Amino acid sequence: MKRVLVTGGSGWIGRHVTARLLEKGFEVHATYRRAVISNSNTSATCHWHQVDLLDEAAVTSLIHNVQPTYLIHLAWEAVPPQCYRSITNYHWVHASMALIQRFVENGGTDVVIAGSCAEYEWENGYLAEQSTPLSNKTPYALCKNTLRTWLQSYAEHVGLRVCWARIFHLYGPHESGKRFISSIITSLLKKEEVLCTHGRQSRDFLYIEDVAAALVSLAMSKLDGVVNIGSGRPVPLRLIASIIQEQMGSRASIHWGAIPLPADEPLFVGANIERLTKEAHWKPAYTLHAGLIETIAWWRHQVEEQC
């Protein structure tokens, strides 16, 4: 049985990744900081480990005890917008290097790292792994790109397969409520004022279950290097909002243009997903409409419980 360690296993992406790995027959070990979750939709059991991944001694002990063959590294400072400028990004570079070194020293062979489209210099068009310039404008972008550069060199010397997944915009149940789609849904459910930018910008959104499925596909593949994870179909924010309103039966007004859009932010940003679809043979299971139905239902339940 293939043994995999998932860092950040109780996080938004991690909870879906661990469930899919269990379905695929992996022996799954996952880390958490505060609260463990239950993968009740499967008969298999995830082995949970409460670990501070910024503590190198604790990480050394974890890897020695688990002896994983695969590592899916999701843990990082990842809640926008504060994550982009957090000083913790610098700590995660060192911690991630130590984690990966201990993993290799204990026989690990395959690593999938979660990055994001924020590592790119945003420009109008589809962002591609090999041709789009990388950013160093924020601590997040600089630290992620620094880790990837180090890891590329390190992997060549130790024979490690590394797949770096750059995830674009995601949405779905269990999100913290800070991103565009969840903010629109929760504001409409609570009958709060909805303030937005002009909404004419197009962005690439992918449902959380599809994001998890793509990460597991990359872990099970032989792909290495950078791979974008997205839908490949950017959609204007105004259109997404109108679909949400239609599905919710809401006639509430959305105040477009109430929030200024940064002057340097492009109007069209999409993910070039040729590597993901052609080399990993992956395709999404959810349409935008289907994903939004699931997301709205989950948030409706959350809001009703709070009332």
Rank of each mutant, 00 (worst) to 15 (best):
M1W: 00
M1P: 07
V4R: 00
V6N: 02
G8P: 01
G11P: 00
G14P: 01
V17W: 00
R20I: 02
L21V: 07
L21E: 05
E23L: 08
K24A: 13
G25C: 06
F26D: 03
V28G: 04
H29T: 06
H29K: 05
A30N: 06
Y32L: 09
R33L: 10
I37E: 04
I37Q: 03
S38P: 05
S43M: 12
T45H: 14
C46H: 03
H49T: 12
V51M: 07
V51R: 02
N65W: 08
N65H: 14
P68A: 10
I72V: 14
I72F: 10
L74P: 04
E77Y: 05
P80L: 10
Q82R: 12
C83H: 01
Y84P: 02
R85I: 12
Y90L: 11
H94N: 12
H94V: 10
A98W: 04
L99N: 01
G108C: 06
G108E: 03
D110V: 09
A114W: 00
E119A: 06
Y120E: 03
Y120V: 04
W122T: 06
W122R: 05
S131F: 05
S131C: 05
S135F: 05
N136G: 13
T138P: 09
T146G: 12
T146H: 14
L147K: 09
R148Y: 14
T149K: 15
S153Y: 09
A155M: 15
E156K: 15
C163H: 04
R166P: 07
I167L: 14
L170W: 06
L170Y: 08
Y171Q: 11
Y171K: 07
P173L: 07
P173Q: 07
H174F: 14
I181K: 09
S182C: 06
I184G: 01
S187D: 10
L188E: 07
L189A: 09
K190L: 12
C196K: 08
Q201L: 08
D204W: 02
L206V: 08
I208N: 00
V216R: 08
S217D: 13
K222R: 14
L223V: 06
D224P: 10
D224F: 13
V226S: 03
V227S: 01
N228H: 15
G230L: 15
G230C: 15
G232N: 11
R233T: 15
V235I: 15
P236Y: 08
L239I: 14
L239G: 01
I240A: 08
S242F: 10
I243E: 11
I243Q: 12
I244E: 05
E246I: 05
S253P: 03
S253A: 07
H255E: 06
W256Y: 10
G257D: 04
G257F: 04
G257A: 05
A258I: 03
I259K: 10
I259V: 11
A263S: 12
E265F: 14
P266Y: 09
P266Q: 04
L267E: 13
F268K: 07
V269T: 13
G270D: 03
G270V: 03
I273Q: 04
E274W: 13
E274Q: 14
R275P: 02
K278W: 12
H281G: 01
H281D: 13
W282H: 02
P284M: 13
A285E: 14
T287Y: 13
T287G: 11
L288S: 09
A290N: 13
L292K: 04
A297C: 12
H301S: 12
Q302D: 08
E304S: 14
E304F: 12
C307D: 11
